[in-house]
Amino acid sequence: MSGSSRRGLFRDLAAAAARVAIPDEKPKEPARAPLLNDAELDRYSRQLLLPEFTEMAQLSLRDASVLVVGAGALGSPVAMYLAGAGVGRLGIADDDTVEVSNLHRQLLHFTPDVGTPKTESAASKLRFLNPEIIVEPYQVRVDEANAPGLVEGQDLVVDCSDSFATRYAVNKACCEAGIDLVEGGVVGWSGLVMTIVPGATACYRCAFPTEPADARSCAEAGVLGPAAGVIASLQALEALKFLTGVQPTLVDEFLSVDLATLDTIRVNVRRRADCPDCGDPC
């Protein structure tokens, strides 16, 4: 063996020893870029900071279609929170025009809007709030005839209507189409919230088979703006939890809120086999 090849052998051995002593540094590559763009990261940063609220949760909102029935005391905060949170397609259905007596509780409408259709007034504010989303106003009174067409294709419906007739119509349409629904109502000092997964959990009619005989409207019983706001906030919260899956929702029970005392009661509700809206057709 010549001297030069011996030197080569020693060099190779030294290099091998060095590799054992100092392992190769692992290869590096840039982390994959988020699917949300920088403007979205900025706009939604405060909710993305929540540990449970992942990028997938935000993308679920961006891909979601939600119909808000009613652009009044409940519908205003619900639509504002859902628009702000980044629900990609937001429908809002109402046939009323703005009245001055609405303004103390219906946050989407201002004094210059008096006389204009609520959906138009609502849509213009919601587009200012979040230009990244699509807002679709439906200038109709939701009833049994048009509810199926309105709920079709939605991922979720939030019922913010002010009458039992509309509530039952929306509940029936959602049950028949298998579209999830967040119900809410407030009159005087009492409010309630309930989330419905058709075919799996109790529906609104399971909980309330018939309209209460003494049912009163806000026009009769009165309501404070923030009392409606509390219930609307709970509905929006349920909607966001449902759409993202980040927290469980209020199903097979409803939350009854006494807005005078701030007492809350969770009332268990069971699916009824004979429910005309969600019962087993067999």
């Binding site: 982390a31 994959r32 988020p34 949300l36 990261l41 405060r46 993305l48 992942t54 990028e55 997938m56």
Partner: peptide, 15 residues
């Protein structure tokens, strides 16, 4: 801040 952590959190979610 807090976008520094938002970007870091989202990058971690994908690891």
């Amino acid at each position: 801040c807090p976008l520094t952590w938002v970007k870091t959190k989202l990058a971690l979610e994908r690891l």
